[in-house]
Amino acid sequence: MAFDLNSLLAFIIFGVTIGVVYGIVALGISLIYSGLDIVHFAHGEMYMFGAFFGLVLAENVGLPYPVALVGAMIITAVVGMLVERVFYRRLTRAGGGYTVAGMGMIICGFGMSVAMVNVAYFIWGAEAEPFRANLDYIPRLQFPGDIEVPESYVLTAIISVILMFTLHYFLRYTKPGLAVRAVAHNKDIAYLMGINVPLMISLIFGVACALAAAAGVLIGPMQSVQVEMGYLMLMKAFAAAVVGGFGSLPGAIIGGIMVGVFENLGAAYISASHKDIYAFLLLILVLMIKPSGLFGVEAKVKA
């Protein structure tokens, strides 16, 4: 492909947009990591479930797209909290983190991932479903040099920014947000502050799953919705979280954007058929230079 500045700009714009979505999923993974000290391997499936819930609400129920988005977020949050309450809690209570005791948690996450994929097959079948959202009221963006950004990308950018600022405001300026940060840092002390720690952990899990669902509904109109979509998203979001520094929330977003841009540029200028490799190339590069990730703070300053 011939190199010109306009198409470079276009690749970067699309890369940033898709990257922000990776970032939102990564944000959830980072939140869960901060709050529960576990890496949630079934988070890709939460994203997939969210996409399907959004699809059902928009196409079958006939809700407008933004309402379907919010609806999918709420339903997925409830599913997530249920999963946490029923399956993960007894394992996290045993503690362990990354020690041998924590292995149970990791295996449980994988198991949950497989189980959820199969439940999804059972309900929605193996075919990829197109997500035809009516987005006529969203303007297309025109950039100099004939770059046109479609509605779904514009909407994704807007909603992602709203979600990020809402989360930031929630964590920084509200009382439950303060409690979430306290729980993320140290559960025992949070308990001694009078914080209902198990409730806050449920809340963290719900928020993280709602974010994943939002990402699913946002990706829906760009690609299509299918049962196996969660696996690749988990990998990309995981790469984004690690690139940004695990546990760091701004790092998750920046990492997501970097992964998005990097893979779009790689697809454009190196080879489009290996698009999914570039995220991990970036991951390896960053880890070689800065093993704690770009924003990984050694002193465990989380959330």
């Binding site: 840092h185 002390i189 001694l192 502050m193 002193a299 300053v301 959330a303």
Partner: peptide, 23 residues
């Protein structure tokens, strides 16, 4: 549970190193 005891008025101050450094 600990948080319920705090509501009753039993408050434990932990050792000094356990403030929230990022707050």
């Amino acid at each position: 549970k600990p948080h319920e005891r705090v509501r009753l008025g039993i408050v434990q101050v932990t050792q000094a190193k356990e403030a929230y450094p990022a707050m």
